[in-house]
Amino acid sequence: MHADSTTTKKAAALAAFAGLDREPGVAKPDPILVVDNVVRRFGGLTAVDVAHLEIQRGSITALIGPNGAGKTTFFNQLTGFDSADEGSWTFNGRQLKGVPAHRVARTGMVRTFQLTKALSKLTVMENMRLGAQNQRGENFFRALVPGSWRRQEDEITERAEELLERFKLDAKRDDFAGSLSGGQRKLLEMARALMVGPELVMLDEPMAGVNPALTQSLLSHVKDLREEGMTVLFVEHDMDMVRDISDWVVVMAQGAVIAEGPPDTIMSDQRVVDAYLGAHHDAPMSAEEFEEQLQEAEAELEAEIEEKA
């Protein structure tokens, strides 16, 4: 699979976005995830305040924003790892507010983590097997009767082997996951998430700490997800990667979605430039503003003098 070839799935995703407004919260033709008024406050700080957001089915959507924009908190809320103070969101029409993380995963919305969570003292194969759903042997009493889960275990192993081969981890099959390199752990985490059989894959900074040689391979794996009909939502800082693989970009700043748009033009949007570099970052102070500040300072001084008198 070539990185540049425009496939039918890619074309379909791009067609869905054609002619859409660039405003935050714009309606998509076939949204898989719809978010309404989600708020998260930590004491006085409002970390997330997203009015409306829709994620198009079958597309790769990037979520970008400066540090502290609330991307990861928003991710945690959607996947049940953090609670929401207000708001609601639906996945495939199913209300997910207040649903615990493991139930969210079972509905088909599976995430990875910014700090890779390989289960170090389990082998690569055991990591993969863990991802499979509805395992008979995960019930305490059936676990005691190996005959009741052996066959399912063999099927799971077969599926895991296929995925490991695709992610080029088959040689590491029986190694401890803790012995893998950082990039290989990212690959393992993604492969393990696929064992769940997700519809929506949420990747939290998939490229963080990955060496350039593995980046290309990771990128093509993410594109493959769309080819297989999955939807991808990912948080990323690397704009080259965002431009390369995403079909649509959502920009967050200070907890809110401030802009949306196609990857090739989004970075020239004035709102996005302001968010990254600060509004008026290069504008000199005008004469009126200077006068205003001077008067304010004088008024304060006078007030202080009166108080003392």
């Binding site: 615990p100 493991h102 097997r129």
Partner: peptide, 24 residues
């Protein structure tokens, strides 16, 4: 040796990862 034990050992390593894979 069973999948039940595998979930237990995985929880020891990182319970958030296990949660993200749909286990209670």
């Amino acid at each position: 040796k069973s999948p039940w034990g595998r979930v237990l050992k995985a929880i020891r390593e990182d319970e958030d990862a296990v949660r993200s894979l749909g286990k209670n």
